[in-house]
């Protein structure tokens, strides 16, 4: 699989985890009815921040490695 496809797949995973069904993993209350937390940070907030950073990193890489070559029109 070439690197642009790997980045596309990673972006799709980050979107599913950060904004989609992945939210079930951290968004549900515990058995005691409490919210989950991660090192004192509410887990849902930490989860969203993490997957956003993954998405941003992928877009930065894609922009510099792939998109830049499409700037100029073919002759």
């Amino acid at each position: 699989m070439n690197s642009s496809r790997i980045l596309t797949l990673l972006f799709a995973i980050a979107t599913l985890m950060g904004t989609g069904p992945g939210l079930y993993l951290v968004g549900s209350p515990t058995e005691e009815g409490l919210a989950q937390s991660l090192l004192g940070v509410p887990a849902l907030y930490a989860w969203v921040a993490f997957w956003f950073l993954v998405q941003a990193g992928i877009i930065l890489m894609a922009s510099h490695r792939f998109w830049v070559h499409r700037d100029e029109p073919a002759q």
């Binding site: 979107t15 904004t19 549900s28 209350p29 509410p42 849902l44």
Partner: peptide
């Protein structure tokens, strides 16, 4: 923020509207 009630710290939120598929 951690002192907020669980309804404000979990899905689908206090009004029950924001399930993960809705957000997606």
């Amino acid at each position: 923020v951690s002192t907020l009630p669980p309804e404000a710290l979990t899905m689908p939120g206090a009004t029950g509207k924001w399930n993960p598929w809705m957000i997606f």
